[in-house]
Amino acid sequence: MPRSMRRLTALWAALALLLAGCGGVGSGAPATSAPAAKAASDYPTKAIDVMAPANPGGGFDSTARIFQKALTDDKIVSVNVTVSNKPGAGGTVGMAELIKNSAGDPYKLIMVGRVTVGSQITGKTEAKVSQLTPIARVMAETEVIVAPASSPFNSIKDVIDALKRDPKAVKIAGGSAGGIDHELAALLVKEAGKDVKDLAYVPFAGGGEAAAAIIGGQVQLGISGYGEFKGQIDAKQMKAIAISADQKLKSVSIPTLKEGGVNIGLTNWRLLAAPPGISEADTARLKEIATKVHDGKTWQEAIEKNSWFDSFTTENLITFVATEQSSLTATLTALGLVK
């Protein structure tokens, strides 16, 4: 059938073109899936996915991607490692999906954090961080309070004074409702002696999305993880007012809240976790892998570059999550963010 053959040729030509395009990448770049060098434990034998339950470019995402880079670049695993994004509600959207669809699968990891615990409490979601199999608390990060570059606020005292005058006039942009950004905003209003009901908090999907509103003066204050605003602070598009951690950052001289006379200390943390129902052997192996990542060059550089606090641990994580859950519930209830 010469006619149909000709038609088929057209199909193959189109496809071959596509393949040629992709083949170029495959062969032009270093192979990421070299055969396994050693097999002390049989994990991992196939591709690992690390879910970042947020948009690309945010805190969860960059932590997950640096973890991915470390696994590959420091040659800790020889399988493919992918990062998938599942944004929404402080990570609870992605977490709920992981718990539901990937229980028992040690190849589906997730990055969660204090934000996720907060959102699960305020959002009253079914899925809980405590259901996951914790692998490692990978890092901690301070929150930063920023204002537009042209803002009259120069210190945390200015902010508290303005909140004392009229909390509703100070619109504060940050991440999802109930997360650590929201919590810090509420704490500031409380510190000013005002009712948290009057807090004007404008939630965005993350710091990156909130950045435009802050730079443009749409809001008076912004709150997010330091890493999310670092670029805009360095470029002087935003003014850093204070950081929330007790500990100062190594390279930057932004005052802590306590230095500004405000008795609030908050540090965000992120946790690498696996779905529920993972075998003890796989959990142990994952902890070993995470420790190797932490000790490696890529991760150590990232700590330096992103001004993270090195709070890595694989121990007592279940207790840690439970403590955070109950203390956060108490705080958020006291603030009136949970009813």
Partner: peptide
């Protein structure tokens, strides 16, 4: 500004961060 305007540019920001670069005017 170093902020994403679409799904694709958001992934590009992630890529910048992996290279240790901060997208933005600097």
């Amino acid at each position: 500004l170093g902020i994403p305007g679409s799904g694709t540019t958001a992934v590009m920001i992630a890529a910048f961060q992996i290279y240790g670069l901060q997208p933005g005017p600097l």
